[in-house]
Design a protein around this nucleic acid. Structure first.
Lengths: 141, 141
DNA sequence: CCCTTAAATCGGATTTGTTCTTATTTGATC
DNA sequence: GATCAAATAAGAACAAATCCGATTTAAGGG
């Protein structure tokens, strides 16, 4: 997803444009990795030093609801990255547990699963491979 | 995994036997679903009304480290269930997001994945299907 | 342009899940 | 039964996330 697409989605849903929102999205668009709310705060402080964490958290959850951001969880804290499933087709990621860096995996296990027990009404799924990226392996040695 | 196996694992690793630990394990063994620390606290209060949450949390993490409990996360809180991967072979679950009830899924996507980018050193993976179980669908209507 | 209004933001207090600290108790071993 | 390390209690401390009341700001209409 591109920054412009994200802003368009916001507009379509009646959300106001603010420089802070755009900057948050730009920050997420800048790297192929999951960022924590803290990471985003840190990066946005350069342009908006007074931004409150309430704003960051509130915007993040708006973005997640609108499908602009994808969410996961590492070490008990939420991590976010610009949605990329919509770029092509649905897929999953390998995630570096050190730095949040991601890389796409082909395919989705749901396509292959023979059967989900019929006493469950399926609402979603999560498939994530965890690891350490080359950079983080190097740094930790 | 059975309660006795779990206790055996504790013993093998030099942990002391306590009634509280056994009871915690029994509680987890009693149902095929993920329980929160709070759930376990609640259930154990019948036998050990004074048990502190520190004890519950500390024991839970010991159990997770020893592979006695499996951990996941729902609604921002840790959930635990008696490990069952060791029963037969490695597998995954459908999880009811309402009550934590689980059901096994055959197979593991890691077997099918063609290739993980070689710049990642894989350390683990998570595959979970989420849904609502029959009981919870009924109750919410 | 200015006015109005609802949405967005601020700043701090609050909540929630979890961990830490210190003193005390208890299980295992001799 | 004495000893000692491990386990526990109780509450303080922590960190992530949310809530709240007051203020500011974007968007649209006159």
């Amino acid at each position: 997803m591109k920054v412009e697409e994200a802003l368009q989605i916001l507009k379509e849903h009646g959300f106001k444009y603010t420089g802070k929102r755009e900057e948050m999205i730009r920050i997420c668009a800048a790297e192929k990795r999951y960022l924590s709310a803290k990471d985003i705060m840190e990066r946005i402080k350069e342009q908006y030093p007074t931004l409150s964490f309430d704003t960051v958290y509130r915007n993040i959850s708006t973005f997640v609801e609108l499908g602009i951001l994808e969410e996961t969880e590492l070490d008990g804290e939420g991590r976010f990255r610009l949605a990329c499933s919509t770029d092509g087709h649905h897929h999953h990621h390998v995630i570096c547990t050190e730095c949040g860096k991601t890389s796409s995996l082909p395919g989705c296990p749901m396509n292959i699963i023979s059967a989900v027990p019929e006493e469950f009404q399926v609402t979603g799924h999560k498939f994530e491979v965890y690891g350490t990226c080359k950079e983080c392996v190097t740094h930790s040695n």
